[in-house]
């Protein structure tokens, strides 16, 4: 059997309104994340997707439950916002994460290569303040990839990018990912993105969150066309499935798609 990371009986509460109330985001929640695969997490806004990534990355501590296999793993985290250093150029922002890892020569080669992949080579000496939102996000994508991590967490990184750029980034992602097959947890709102990149998709609903649907994407990557053909069929099937299984199903389907 394929090795996987295990989330078992996870419980996480937040204090709200100055500690008067608590919000149970996760209660005895379990999930398995296959190693060296792309696992997509979908679900309506506010159902706990970002919280899950924060728990997995160690930024948040669970109230109860176990995260097996995550210990000591290095993580690249593509946050929902780019989180670039405003006083460093595009180039320096990427170099920032590998400065202590590789010698200068090698870093120059690596940064240059990844900047080309996200189509920002001409902007390497710009400060982030001079870039558009989409360009900043591309810098943070490049930064996440140059860092030699065991695991890559992505929190809706392609949101707000135009379709053409998005597809080209998705393709660079696939190319980059196939070089080292990192374990990826990819949070997205977008069925097309999930079906295009994912090996496995979990659809959450809640709160507290539970796995509403779990499915494998079996179409080989070479045969996938973004939002077309077999992927489109599978998406429609998925949406229809969500619509007849639940009492208030279409709300969920709409919320996600």
């Amino acid at each position: 059997m394929h090795k996987s990371l295990q989330v078992t009986n996870l419980t996480k509460e937040f204090n709200t309104t100055q500690g008067l109330n608590t919000l149970k985001v996760y209660e005895k929640f379990s999930l398995s994340i296959p190693e060296n695969k792309v696992t997509c997490i979908m679900g309506p806004s506010g159902c706990g997707k970002t919280t899950l990534l924060n728990l997995v990355s160690g930024l948040l501590k669970p109230d109860a439950g176990e995260l097996k296999g995550f210990d000591g793993k290095t993580v690249s985290y593509l946050f929902q916002e780019p989180r670039l250093l405003p006083w460093r150029t595009v180039w320096q922002n990427i170099d920032f994460v590998i400065k202590d890892i590789y010698p200068k020569r090698q870093r120059e080669e690596i940064v240059s290569r990844y900047l080309k992949m996200v189509d920002l080579h001409d902007f390497s000496h710009y400060w982030p303040g001079r870039l558009s939102g989409g360009m900043k996000q591309r810098v943070s994508i490049a930064r996440a990839f140059v860092f030699p991590s065991d695991m890559l967490l992505m929190d809706e990184p392609f949101k707000g990018l135009d379709l053409q750029l998005k597809i080209s980034l998705l393709d660079s992602f696939t190319a980059l990912w196939q070089q080292d097959l990192r374990t990826v947890i990819f949070v997205t709102h977008d069925f097309d993105e999930a079906l295009y990149l994912g090996d496995h998709i979990y659809i959450l609903s809640g709160l507290p969150a539970n796995v509403n649907k779990s499915l494998a994407v079996t179409i080989p990557r070479e045969e996938r066309r973004y939002g077309e053909g077999k992927l489109k069929e599978q998406k429609e099937e998925l949406l229809a499935g969500l619509c007849c299984r639940q009492e208030q199903p279409c709300v969920l389907a709409q919320a996600i798609s």
Partner: peptide
Amino acid sequence: AKLIEMAAMYRIRRLRRLSEIYLP
């Protein structure tokens, strides 16, 4: 705090966090 979180995630050493995030 989000930049500090980012630096921690990428395992940036303390001294560099100081010189490249806190000081600027």
